[in-house]
């Protein structure tokens, strides 16, 4: 239930940021009339980044860190149709240099997740999912101040297809998403990317996100290894010793792990957590992120096992 296309420069990427369980990233569904709600905290930082494809550090930024605290909720309309909503508060900071970090309420996002089970026999189960989502800034925060802005300022519309295969308690999930991003109005009256643009409107390239996760899905414990590849469909590289800009071609490959654990003595309560590390990128920071959260599950209908 975590905000997804947070700028990599600013925050860790989704999967790292996103701990396990009933999110738009995974194959877990809430049951009918079941709801979960809870906070999550994420800390992410980098001291190296890719200026185009050139990896470097910047002693005038030092370590750039981002903290976020979000609230999310997920509700099962039916066993196969879930809706989820979330919004974070974000802080940024640079450990060196003079630039002041920023903070504020970032974007609200909402997803609808639909499941269809075409095959289920014995220990084998295949599920396919269609997801749609939107996100938009909740405040007039400053986007055009990378890498210290708290968000990208875009309104996003996401379409995603996902497939999940389960054999006993072992699962593999793969998904691909297309993220349409709106243009962003900035405080400057013009800007240069590959040419001089006499406008305050920055044309934002769309993105694709590919995601694979695999691991154990037990009654109480869910533990998975995850890999995410984010690709921006256009945009320019940061030129040498320039500032990053919103419409840079930001790509990243991130590996990580996530877990969710329902307390056996009180399964309504679950702890989640995850780590993620950017192993390769372009125009993004080499982020390491760690997150943890507590979710509480309400059952308005029939009680079922958590990780159905």
């Amino acid at each position: 239930m975590i905000k997804k296309y947070i700028p990599f420069f600013v925050l860790a990427l989704s999967c790292c940021y996103n701990a396990s369980g009933q999110t738009e990233m995974d194959a877990i569904m809430m049951n009918k009339k079941q709801m979960c709600i809870g906070p999550m905290y994420t800390y992410s930082s980098w001291d190296h980044y890719w200026e185009g494809k050139y990896k470097r550090n910047n002693q005038n930024l030092g370590k750039v860190s981002t903290q976020s605290f979000l609230l999310g909720a997920n509700y099962g309309i039916t066993d196969n149709l879930n809706v989820m909503v979330m919004a974070p508060y974000v802080w940024t900071k640079a450990s060196a240099g003079t630039l002041r970090g920023m903070e504020g309420i970032q974007d609200i996002s909402a997803f609808v997740k639909y499941r269809y089970i075409p095959f289920k026999k014995g220990n084998h189960k295949v599920s396919v999912f269609a997801l749609g989502g939107v996100s938009a800034p909740l405040t007039d925060y400053v986007a055009d101040f990378l890498p210290l802005s708290i968000g990208m300022g875009t309104t996003n519309v996401t379409g995603k297809l996902m497939a999940d295969y389960q054999w006993k308690k072992i699962t593999v999930t793969a998904s691909a998403a297309y993220i349409w991003r709106s243009n962003v109005d900035i405080d400057r009256s013009s800007y240069y990317d590959t040419q001089l643009r006499l406008t305050n409107e920055v044309k934002m390239p769309d993105q694709m996100q590919y995601h694979i996760r695999a691991g154990y899905r037990g009654k109480y414990l869910l533990a998975e290894a995850v890999f995410t590849r984010m690709v921006t469909m256009g945009g320019n590289d940061i030129t040498k010793n320039n500032m990053p800009s919103l419409n840079n071609r930001m790509n990243a490959s991130i590996i990580g792990g996530q877990f969710k654990y329902h307390m056996p003595f009180h399964p309504n309560l679950a702890l989640t957590g995850g780590v993620g590390y950017t192993v390769d990128g372009r125009n993004v920071g080499q982020t390491l992120s760690i997150s943890g959260g507590i979710f509480y599950f309400f059952y308005f209908g029939k009680r079922q096992t958590p990780n159905s």
Partner: peptide, 18 residues
């Protein structure tokens, strides 16, 4: 204030600008 930051950035005309 947000307005002050908008003014800073509108007139910053720093690196990579004209």
């Amino acid at each position: 204030t947000r307005e002050q930051i908008a003014i800073v950035h509108h007139w910053a005309d720093g690196v990579g600008t004209s």
